[in-house]
Design a binder for these strands. Structure first.
Lengths: 223, 223
DNA sequence: GCACACATACTGTGATCACAGTTGTGAGTA
DNA sequence: TACTCACAACTGTGATCACAGTATGTGTGC
């Protein structure tokens, strides 16, 4: 996160400005703070952050390089807009990778960690009841990534994290529109149960299901 | 590729210099032109390419952001060195993703494309006999990626391509050392046959096998 | 002969400027 | 009213400079 002082970003020891801005924007994408299709320009962002254009420029080129932003030549950077095929492709890869990560994680998770999963799952149900979408999105992130972290494969973790930032803007849109299927909430609890039962295959299967409903959702959507 | 004139890079219409340099370096990593652990500095690369530091700097930050290069704070960029756990993790993800891509590709490939696969496979055997490692590496790339392209999932394709650039330096090392197992060559022909038989599961299984022998190879290696 | 210190030559990072290309708007005309 | 043309306000891109670290190598003192 960025540390602000006098309304502008203060340099943290040893962490380059460009890196802070990069992390900041990546997180914003993940939790869906940017609407699909919205534009980000170097200079206006730099002005908002109180830095020169340089570190912002670096952050944006990095994000574009990871396909988290679209960069047309000589045009401003923008968040991808909802092209059904593209988004469906992304959720397909997500479903597979997150299923794999889950089955890897099952033997590694402690009962304490599984307790926390179940607690998160029940809190998420309450978030939905209270219409607290922002809290729901963050808890959803924590639920999934505490599993993926337990998988113990850095490259897998990072790849999934990247995909979340890529699909974040679309997923947040669905959550905020309350377009989630009724039985979606039960899935999280079931996943925790399957992990507790040390049933790797079933846990992975549920996880794939959790992700891939989105595949169909976006596949049938018009732009 | 970069177009050279008077020993320096000439700007191609519409393609930013930084992008050309980025593509150039990424390909060099993929085919193993850089030894694990070697250092790349902005200014010296810029001098070699005949440009200012700016576009090189952008290319390197992009590569580091995709984890194709390591960037310690305030120290020069470098190609990752061979840490067994890390490399094994990478090949694990590769095996899974390339298996998935293969099974997706099976129903999509034309007989003409499969013919080309078999031709590539037999040429690769000859490359080994002739000790032409560079040609072998490029043909190996073409063999695999013509399959992955047929899978028809852009995100999957890009993710695999990134992983190849990541593992390129290590794989090339093995190829050049001629450390490949005897039965490895037959695998490529078998994969083509399985695709021709439209046996998606078997093709995927063979593909996973093709990748994952490396997992064990590097896992047992000392740094 | 060895160890410590200082100078030098690097490293990435941030800021600033110049440039060319695109977009959008407003005035002038048919 | 509609269309066109020009100008102004953007856009990213490349080059250059200043700076603060770090590693290296050399010379000096013991």
């Amino acid at each position: 996160m960025l540390q602000r002082q006098n309304g502008s970003i203060k340099r943290l020891a040893q962490t380059p400005l460009s890196d802070q801005i990069y992390q900041n924007l990546k997180w914003s994408l993940t939790i869906g703070e940017y609407v699909p299709g919205s534009e980000l320009s170097i200079r206006s962002l730099a002005k908002k952050m109180g830095t020169s254009a340089m570190p912002v420029r670096e952050a944006l080129t990095r994000l574009a390089s990871e396909r988290l932003l679209i960069s047309a030549t000589n045009r401003s950077y923008k968040v991808a807009s909802l092209e059904p095929k593209r988004v469906a492709d992304q959720f397909f890869v997500r479903a597979r990778l997150e299923g794999i990560a889950t089955s890897l994680a099952v033997p590694n998770m402690t009962t304490r960690q599984i307790d926390q999963l179940e607690e998160l799952a029940s809190m998420m149900v309450k978030d939905i009841e209270k219409d607290d979408n922002e809290s729901y999105i963050v808890r959803n992130y924590n639920f999934h990534f505490s599993i993926y972290e337990a998988a113990g494969n850095d490259e897998l973790f990072w790849t999934i994290e990247r995909l979340w930032a890529q699909t974040g803007p679309f997923l947040a849109h669905v959550v905020r529109e309350q377009d989630m299927p009724q039985d979606w909430q039960i899935l999280h609890t079931d996943i925790a149960k399957a992990i507790r039962a040390r049933d790797a295959d079933y846990a992975a299967q549920l996880m794939e299901k959790d992700i891939s409903w989105s595949t169909h959702t976006f596949q049938d959507m018009d732009t």
